[in-house]
Amino acid sequence: MILLGVSNWDGSVVESLRAQVRPGRGAWMLTREEDVDAHALRRQGWTISAIARHLGRDRKAIRAYLNGDQVPGQRRQSPDAFVPFLQYCRQRLADDPHLWAS
């Protein structure tokens, strides 16, 4: 946790702000505990914005987890970039017997 101080022109501290820093964690992924908290707060009538502020997360992420679009602790599978070229590579390897495909 980082404490940030805001000061007046005379150097006196007006207020302190708290900012949570979560190293190594993406803005979108929630832990299972945060997901359970978000669902419990939503059942209690909290707004998505209020839940996002309370958990320190983006409201779009909270909405995605509440709607079931995201599952806690699982990353989305990205499509394989090689798939579009697979048939081309197979054809080239089949055409040239001197190339080793291992």
Rank of each mutant, 00 (worst) to 15 (best):
A81Y: 05
V71F: 00
R75S: 07
R59M: 06
W46H: 06
D80V: 04
W46R: 03
Q74S: 14
G45W: 07
R92S: 05
G73Y: 09
H98D: 14
R90L: 09
P84Q: 01
H98F: 10
R90S: 07
V71D: 01
R92G: 11
A64E: 12
I51P: 02
W46M: 08
S78T: 05
S78Q: 11
C89H: 12
R43A: 09
P79D: 14
H98W: 12
G56A: 04
R59A: 02
Q70R: 13
G73W: 05
I51G: 10
D37A: 08
Q87I: 10
V71G: 00
Q87E: 06
G68A: 13
H39F: 04
R53C: 11
H39Q: 03
R59K: 09
I48G: 00
A50F: 12
I48A: 01
S78G: 08
P72R: 01
A64R: 07
P97I: 06
R42N: 07
P72G: 07
P97R: 13
R63L: 14
Q70C: 04
A61L: 08
H39E: 07
R75F: 05
A52Q: 12
P97D: 14
S49Q: 15
Q87C: 06
V71N: 00
R63M: 15
A50H: 09
L41S: 09
L55I: 04
L41K: 14
P72W: 05
Y88P: 03
A52K: 03
Q91C: 11
D80T: 04
D58P: 01
R75D: 10
R53L: 07
D96E: 02
Q87P: 04
D80Q: 03
H54F: 12
L93E: 08
F85E: 10
R42E: 09
G73T: 06
R42H: 11
R76V: 13
D37Q: 10
H98N: 12
Q74T: 13
G45A: 02
A81W: 06
N67H: 05
F82N: 07
Q87L: 05
W46C: 10
A64F: 09
D80H: 01
A52R: 05
L55E: 10
